[in-house]
Design a protein around this nucleic acid. Structure first.
Length: 372
RNA sequence: GUGGGUAUAGUUCAGUUGGUUAGAGCGCCAGUUUGUGGCACUGGAGGUCGGCGGUUCGAAUCCGCUUACCCACCCCA
């Protein structure tokens, strides 16, 4: 609550909080950053070397009404950089996100950035906003009336027709940045441009977590429904001190994995499916034990090998091997056991080669066929 | 929290104004020379039609309640 901010929706409405069997109040984490900050401080990482660069994959929980791209249990991939207050860290972070998105091949993603300044800038800005919105206080929507006192910046984000119309001509945070924050933002934009990253400045971005300051950004898709933010983040210099640790600047992002999957799906990009097995050892009645032992031997050599464990006919076994996309097969029956020989067959080319019923010989022939 | 929608086989979906034994494609299993798969053909398994209650001679179909899911608002990854 301290980290994310107790006036945010995440804390006020969306936390899964309950008592455990020892009557302790437990909350499922709604996001990753505050947990990482706590871990960094608790483990003393901040005293080791700086900057520290970290990543996480984690499931998160928010009590919201589910819809496309919004689940009550979802997964985030995130990175965090601790120990630099300079724009290089901000841009490095954004570039990594851009790289991930590009590497995955997701098209039509826009990077939107903004600066929400520091405490001083925001104090002035809040006053200006209050003054501005107070003039139309009566026409604001109910939630925004309360936001006027608690967190006027979020009125800018309100989608209600009335509020957004009023917000249209509201003062912009960018006009209230102090010298340092302005320099930081200008340098950030410059580094992005120098790195060849395309972005737009969206002065309306207000992140929903209170720990952010200065740079905030979102990677947005318009192909995955109304929950378009596929990745979002920013700088959070005050968070460590806020939760009771040393004062250490940081910047990071979180990526919504389910939303990434939606975007991949919308673009028709398939993720790699089932891993094909390398060798399938089929067996005829009486040869099951030999097949089993050879399969195990191949596995110990690091191969992905399978044999029949369901007692099916040869035909069914090979059908199964085909469905598993096995690269090679070996059929073992009475003849093979008597002669201590079998046929290693490439299931795609149909090429065959004689092998001894011996792990090393199978590996040798396998490699010969693979290298051809 | 607010609004709208959907629920039938493993899956994607048909199912007429209420009327016999609820169907199809794909998937799964088996067979088509009992030692080589993919293709084709044939056959098979698999459903208390989301749940409970009501109307009716009769309900997958109509009504009420309920649960789950989907979409949008809100909010956010």
């Amino acid at each position: 609550m301290r980290g994310v901010g107790d006036t945010t929706d995440i804390v006020q409405k969306e936390m899964y909080t309950f008592l455990d069997k020892g009557d302790r109040s437990v909350t499922l984490r709604p996001e990753g950053t505050a947990s990482v900050a706590r871990a960094v401080l608790e483990s003393g990482m901040a005293n080791e070397k700086l900057p520290q660069k970290l990543f996480y994959f984690s499931n998160c929980f928010r009590y919201e009404k589910p819809q496309a791209g919004r689940l009550r249990e979802f997964h985030q991939f995130g990175i965090e950089c601790y120990g630099s207050e300079r724009p290089e860290a901000d841009v490095e972070t954004m570039l990594i996100a851009a790289e991930v998105i590009e590497e995955l091949g997701i098209p039509d993603i826009t990077l939107e950035i903004n600066s929400i300044g520091c405490k001083d800038c925001r104090a002035k800005y809040r006053e200006a906003l209050k003054e501005y919105f107070a003039k139309s206080k009566e026409t604001l929507c109910e939630t925004c009336k309360t936001r006027l006192e608690s967190n006027p910046m979020r009125i800018l984000d309100c989608k209600s027709e009335v509020c957004s119309r009023i917000a249209k001509d509201a003062p912009m945070i960018l006009d209230f940045l102090c010298g340092d924050c302005n320099t930081h933002f200008e340098k950030t934009k410059k580094l992005l441009t120098l790195s060849g990253a395309s972005y737009i400045v969206n002065p309306k971005i207000v992140r929903g977590l209170d720990y952010y300051n200065r740079t905030v950004f979102e990677f947005i898709s318009n192909k995955i429904g109304s929950q378009g933010a596929v990745c979002a983040g920013g700088r959070y210099d005050g968070l460590c001190a806020q939760i009771g640790g040393v004062d250490i600047p940081a910047v990071g992002f979180a990526m919504g994995l389910e939303r990434i999957l939606l975007a991949l799906d919308a673009a028709g990009i398939n993720l790699p499916g089932e891993t094909p097995i390398e060798i399938f050892i089929a067996s005829l009645p009486g040869a099951e034990e030999t097949a089993f032992v050879i399969t195990n031997g191949l596995r110990k050599k690091g191969f992905s090998a399978e044999c029949e464990i369901a007692g099916r006919s040869l035909k069914a076994q090979l059908k199964y091997a085909d469905k598993r996309k096995a690269k090679y097969n070996i059929v073992i029956g009475e003849n093979e056991i008597n002669e201590n020989k079998a046929i290693l067959k490439d299931m795609q080319s149909g090429e065959k080669r004689e092998v001894l019923l011996d792990i090393d010989d199978i590996l040798l022939r396998y490699n010969e066929m693979e290298c051809k």
